[in-house]
Write a protein that binds this DNA or RNA. Structure first.
Length: 232
DNA sequence: CCCTGATTCGC
DNA sequence: GCGAATCAGG
């Protein structure tokens, strides 16, 4: 593509209109962003708020820092005078110690007339069949440290599991909610009696079956037993 | 990484 | 004159 009058005009217009070189190139078609910039500069359109040149002091001492051009010119390069570095003496107004605006609860102040901090108790959204209490999504434990990667080791019968509900102990009458993580020595299952009709006990039904919130009022889904935080 | 404009330099 | 390559900052 060549720079016809029309294209040059469009370029000029858009350039001055604030469009980015990419947009202009895209609009014109057939040219790259660089071509647009190059052309704009050749047209003398430069000087535009460039994000890369936000701050520019009227000092351009070293414009060519890296351009190893094997110039055969034996021109005696006069030693560049030590750049009159206008070292802006930063007004060291002393570094005030970062004073975190810690809001200390005044004990002597007004004795909380309003509601004191409610104890971390899961909001019960509804009661499910069998009597388990549904929690709202996100009402589980708050820290969500991802389980560190660990090698899965073959679950060997060991004293640590004695008394714990192992995989072999599972039946459709006991809660199969995992406790801990597979591969860990003490990994086992809940083992309580299930809430009839469910694979989990009443307590874990509350975790497994979340109340359905109206669309739009949803939060991130609660962590699943396996991938999520340690549940114990 | 993505984006931006600026600059250089071989064509 | 052109624009890819490169630079440099956000």
């Amino acid at each position: 593509m060549s720079w016809t009058d029309e294209r040059i005009e469009k370029l000029t217009k858009m350039w001055e209109g604030g469009s980015t070189a990419s947009q202009i190139a895209d609009e014109l078609g057939g040219v790259s962003r660089n071509a647009v910039i190059g052309k704009a500069h050749r047209l003398g359109l430069k000087a535009r708020p460039s994000p890369v040149k936000a701050n520019e002091k009227p000092a351009r001492p070293a414009p060519a820092p890296k351009k190893p051009k094997p110039e055969v010119t034996a021109a005696p390069e006069p030693a560049p005078a030590p750049a009159p570095r206008v070292e802006a003496p930063v007004a060291r107004a002393a570094a005030p110690a970062p004073q975190p605006p810690v809001q200390r609860a005044e004990p002597s102040s007004v004795p909380a007339a309003d509601a004191p901090a409610a104890p971390p108790q899961p909001r019960i959204v509804s009661v499910g069949p069998g009597g388990f209490l549904r929690q709202g999504p996100g009402d589980q434990q708050q820290p969500i440290p991802p389980a560190p990667p660990r090698r899965l080791v073959p679950a060997k019968p060991s004293p640590e599991i004695a008394g714990k509900t192992s995989l072999l102990d599972l039946s459709d009458r006991i809660c199969r909610w995992p406790m801990g993580h597979p591969g860990e020595p003490d990994f086992h299952f809940c083992g309580d009696k299930v809430n009839p009709g469910f694979p989990y006990c009443v307590e874990h039904c509350g975790r497994a079956y979340q109340a359905q919130l109206p669309r739009g009022a949803r939060r991130a889904p609660p962590p699943l037993p396996f991938g999520g935080p340690r549940v114990r």
